[in-house]
Design a protein around this nucleic acid. Structure first.
Ligand SMILES: [Mn+2]
Ligand SMILES: [Mn+2]
Ligand SMILES: [Zn+2]
Ligand SMILES: [Zn+2]
Lengths: 152, 152
DNA sequence: TTTAATATTGCAAACCATTTGCAGTTAGAC
DNA sequence: GTCTAACTGCAAATGGTTTGCAATATTAAA
């Protein structure tokens, strides 16, 4: 469905930097893991486990392996989990050091995704937190609408 | 776990107004439905299907019936679905005419929920929409933090 | 009040995303 | 090379949600 973008600007971090990160954390760089990282590296937007699984080279690996790799990398902070509210978790590669906090605008017709740089105003969030006595407040925010292609 | 609040201010709409709404839409007012509405009516916050199910009077009804009642009422616009990202949908009674758009602040330790009246700034949302050529843009937004009780 | 049409229910099975146990297989430190 | 912890495939289990179907209940009509 969604095609990989070959533009170098979208290839993200070097694979070697990613595998290095794994080894540094005493994780093994296996065939399946390298393949999964290659896929994430070439996709600028969050991917479903199933989408990753289906992009895997012939005789890739077991679905459970993709699930396990993804939760391991999430724990190491290498990928970030997003929830578009459709029942399937999505994952996006994170840059080292970056906390990955950002949002998306999703087409409700074709699922096209745009990365959004705007964020919920920090000042208002601070007010919400203090007014209710909550600490360490963050938010989960996604936008939904009809993309240009789907408007005709 | 979460207790029902008996304060009249929290009882919401009359049960008769709710059942009237059902009949008006050619839906039958059955025992299970009345019981489910009674539960929602007394809870000011979104409830899980399981939570509703467990509050049902002895020998309430089948779990599937709660699921079916809830999706029917969602279609009629009588309840609104919320997603706190923990894998279980939550539902809240909606006032007639109101579109129910609002947000929550959820304690990540005890799941206590506070209704939030603030919303994502409409002006910024409008910019996001036009900048990307999307139409009919809305958002899904929830806040997470540690509630006062859980801070000790 | 009885009837008849239709909506609703319980129950069990199906679904779908995700997790887990386990025995056999590797990566990579030494 | 050896050794061992980490990893894998596979199949079974999980948890939320949906569905098919035959039996039952509600309500509009008579
Ligand atoms: Mn993104
Ligand atoms: Mn609410
Ligand atoms: Zn944000
Ligand atoms: Zn809002």
């Amino acid at each position: 469905m969604r095609k990989s973008c070959q533009h170098p600007r979208h290839e993200g971090q070097e694979l070697s930097s990613l595998t290095g990160r794994l080894r540094r954390e005493a994780r093994k760089v296996t065939g399946p893991r390298a393949a999964i990282l290659e896929i994430l590296r070439h996709h600028p937007h969050p991917l479903t486990i199933k989408e990753v699984f289906e992009e895997l080279p012939k005789s890739g690996c077991d679905l459970a392996t993709v699930y396990r790799a993804m939760q391991m990398m999430e724990k190491l902070g290498m990928v970030k989990r997003f929830d578009f509210g459709d029942g399937a978790a999505r994952f996006e590669l994170m840059n080292e050091g970056d906390n990955g906090h950002h949002h998306h605008l999703i087409c409700t017709r074709c699922a096209q995704v745009v990365r959004i740089e705007e964020c919920f105003p920090a000042e208002i969030e601070r007010q919400i937190a203090s007014k209710n006595g909550y600490q360490a407040v963050t938010h989960r925010l996604e936008f939904f609408g009809i993309c240009p292609d789907c408007q005709k």
